[in-house]
Nucleic acid binder design. Structure first.
Lengths: 233, 233
DNA sequence: CTCCTTAGAGAGCAGTGCTCACAAACAGGA
DNA sequence: TCCTGTTTGTGAGCACTGCTCTCTAAGGAG
């Protein structure tokens, strides 16, 4: 194994990403349904069977795209959230939410790839876990900061059943040390609300009620901030 | 046109539902991806081209399944909710939520059909709207009852921007007359939370945090009940 | 009984994912 | 430098898909 990659390895890397790029192009243009290995091969001027030297199956190609999508979303959210001064906890939450929504609207097919219905029989492989949790990590940090600064208001809510308390504890130790499980349980509620709302907007379930969804989105983000006890501003 | 259906019409109706039944069987067994007109035809002992006398395309068959799924969900939720005494507003909300979740877990492929990513290029046709709103109607009624009985507590929340107020007003006149738009806006938040949570559970996004999700579900339902100002019990 | 509509059959088209045997190109050791 | 084993790319081929077309054979209404 050499630090200088061989010509073969370089070519392989290049073709691998060329295939992914063309695959992504097709998914964006026509949705994952119509992603076709043969047409990728055609576009790249190679035999369709050659693709299989790079991805063992169509599903594996899709999985690669999913990982990239998770990473892209994570990076986008990290970016917008990082531009908010650390002490403005609520603004950081708002930035996180806006980041998710903006990314989702700009790259709806990739969003659908991650948060839409999983392909039947498809089990998310190990390697999706880390990129998938990037956004959650941002939320965890923001809560930890708020808690450490003593800025999280007490919120009246149902007490936690022991199993849930334990689960929340587990999440805490993973991404938000010291934050009480009551807060994390409610954060999980806010979390599912956020993605539920974005999914509904993108998948057309808000047509006829809150579409366009800009103001509704802002309102919901505020409600959830209150639910988590984030400071007023 | 006769009240007595002709033999031909009877045969058509029967075959239409036989096709749908076999299609549903396949979707449940292997997911919508693998639904194949040819294998339906094979299973029914007919030529594949004959299917097209009943459904102009594969997508149309899927649309028919989607409508059935909406109706099935609506009926299930209406049923469990109707067994709760009318005056227990909070219990009715809990029943609604439990009904959605139970149905979703029992018929996850059909749930994915409705709330998963829509097929690209697919626009929900007119005829899906009515069955799609059955569950929403249940929620609307429950809120209207609570409001009429003066049981909805005031909840402190961000004020509504004019556009959202108008949208909420529209929803109100459709399914929950007289209920103030503030309440309905928050109900929409609860609504998206509910389906976001169920989707996350079904699609595996809670693995590693709140899985199994029973207690988390109960907690979230309670939080959302509070958000809407539903009475304590 | 006639005539028109409709249901079904079967061949065929263009496309798919994926496999396999084969031939080049490459990489590293002798 | 040659030689050998591994990688890459090829093209034919299999079994399948959605969908269209033409043709035949059954209803059903007058």
């Amino acid at each position: 194994m050499n630090a200088v990659r061989t010509a073969r390895q370089r070519a392989r890397d290049e073709l691998t990403s060329a295939i992914k790029a063309e695959a992504l192009r097709q998914v964006v243009a026509e949705g994952p349904q119509r992603l076709s290995l043969r047409s990728i091969a055609r576009e790249l001027g190679m035999a369709s069977s050659a693709i299989y030297r790079y991805f063992p199956s169509r599903d594996d190609l899709l999985t690669a795209l999913i990982i990239d999508a998770y990473d892209s979303l994570g990076a986008a959210v990290e970016d917008v959230e990082s531009h908010v001064p650390r002490e403005y906890i609520r603004a950081r939450w708002q930035a996180l939410c806006a980041g998710v929504r903006t990314w989702a609207r700009q790259r709806s097919q990739e969003y659908a790839l991650i948060f839409g219905s999983p392909v039947p029989g498809y089990r998310a492989p190990e390697e999706t876990i880390a990129p998938a949790s990037r956004v959650a990590v941002v939320l965890g940090k923001l809560l930890a900061d708020g808690w450490a600064a003593g800025e999280l208001r007490q919120v009246q809510a149902p007490p936690l059943r022991p199993g849930l308390a334990e689960q929340a504890e587990g999440v805490a130790t993973a991404i938000a040390p010291d934050v009480p499980s009551e807060v994390l349980a409610r954060a999980l509620v806010a979390w599912t609300q956020l993605f539920g709302m974005v999914s509904f907007e993108l998948f057309g379930h808000l047509v006829g009620s809150a579409d366009p969804a800009d103001e509704f989105f802002e309102h919901a983000v505020g409600c959830m901030a209150d639910l988590m006890g984030l400071p007023a501003e």
